[in-house]
């Protein structure tokens, strides 16, 4: 992995404010256009941003998980089952989803995180498939391959979020909370510990950082965020099935993370904002959309190794070099 971990993506305070202003403008787009569909895309961007944010926390300790969709699925099913079977409110289902996903991550994290690099990628891939297959074996819980339809909409304090713009506001707040959490981790003592483990686990261990505990903590936080995302996703879309959480969903989160910037704070958000609406721009060319998507992916990897979030820095460096 790249070594420039500690360098913040936004060099100057001015750049930072500009970035925040840009994000706020982007977030307001659906209100300008007034289109329900744009609100829907906004919701999808928020959900993708949250899930990818969770994946980023795991990436900060140097691990790339292909089981992220399974944790989104654990959260989704936890919440759906609590709400539909036990008639608990969504406000119980949401935190429960995060707790259950985090707990599962804690339990399997210890043996799992001994593996590194490609091996970790592969085992998490196998785990994601295992999750899907096992869920299919228990139709009583998962609805089997027909899934569970008619999941109740999000309800907060007796108010049902029926319209897309209402859900959008809620997901924006959730996304802001996740990003704030990421920012706190990043700029706190924990962030420095994460970075040290990412850069060189052996060195980190010898300088007194408990590598295993640090990685486990990152894995639990990341997976808990995924679980919460799953809960919101299930209640918004209204349908869950084990197939929804197949490894292709994990792959799409990984693609967003890497495109946005694997180690940058804003990477997951930038990746989600860029890639979630992208197919919509390409839909005009139904046949070619996946090809164009693939080409863009390879081009970003090739020419922006720091991801899109590293773009300003890269431009700044180019300018310096020219001088």
């Amino acid at each position: 992995m790249s070594t420039s971990v500690s360098a913040p993506p936004m060099a100057s305070a001015f750049g930072g404010w500009l970035f925040v202003a840009l994000l706020a403008t982007l977030a307001a787009v659906p209100w300008f256009t007034g289109s329900v569909f744009h609100f829907h895309i906004g919701i999808m961007v928020c959900l993708a941003g949250m899930a990818t944010g969770g994946l980023a926390v795991i990436a900060w300790v140097g691990q790339l998980s292909l089981a992220h969709a399974a944790f989104v699925g654990i959260g989704a099913y936890t919440s759906v089952l609590l709400v539909t079977r036990l008639d608990l409110p969504f406000l119980v289902g949401l935190p429960a989803a995060a707790v259950v996903a985090g707990a599962v991550a804690y339990i399997i994290g210890a043996p799992l995180l001994r593996l590194r690099g490609v091996y970790f990628v592969l085992i998490t891939f196998a785990l994601n498939e295992l999750f899907r297959l096992v869920m299919l074996e228990f139709p009583g819980i998962s609805g089997g391959s027909s899934g569970i339809a008619g999941v109740p909409k999000i309800q907060l304090f007796g108010i049902t979020l029926a319209a897309q713009w209402q859900v959008y506001i809620f997901t924006l707040i959730c996304l802001a909370v996740v990003m704030a959490l990421l920012w706190l981790i990043r700029n706190g003592q924990l962030g420095r510990r994460f970075a040290a483990v990412e850069e060189n686990p052996a060195l980190a261990e010898s300088s007194g950082i408990p590598t295993a505990r640090t990685q486990s903590l990152a894995f639990v936080i990341g997976c808990a965020i995924a679980g919460a995302t799953g809960s919101i996703m299930a209640h918004y879309v209204g349908f869950v099935s084990p197939e929804t959480f197949a490894f292709q969903l994990s792959v799409s989160y990984v693609i967003m993370l890497v495109t946005g910037g694997r180690l940058a704070l804003w990477g997951p958000l930038v990746g989600a904002v860029f890639l979630t609406p992208l197919p919509e721009f390409l839909r005009g060319a139904v046949e070619y959309q996946h090809i164009i998507y693939g080409v863009i992916l390879i081009a970003v990897l090739r020419f922006l190794p720091q991801g899109l979030a590293g773009l300003p820095e890269q431009i700044a460096r180019l300018r310096r070099d020219q001088r």
Binding site: M1, L64, G117, V118, V121, V251, V254, I255, V258, R262, E287, Y288, H290, I291, Y293, G294, V295, L297, I298, L301, R302, P305
Partner: peptide, 29 residues
């Protein structure tokens, strides 16, 4: 596709995902 990612296993892996998308849908067309 792959030459630029020789030093970077993970980026190479993700590039191969992009390549897979391109090839499959080209065949579909």
């Amino acid at each position: 596709v792959f030459r630029p990612f020789r030093a970077d296993e993970l980026s190479g892996m993700i590039a191969s995902l992009g390549l897979a998308m391109i090839l499959q849908h080209a065949a579909l067309i």
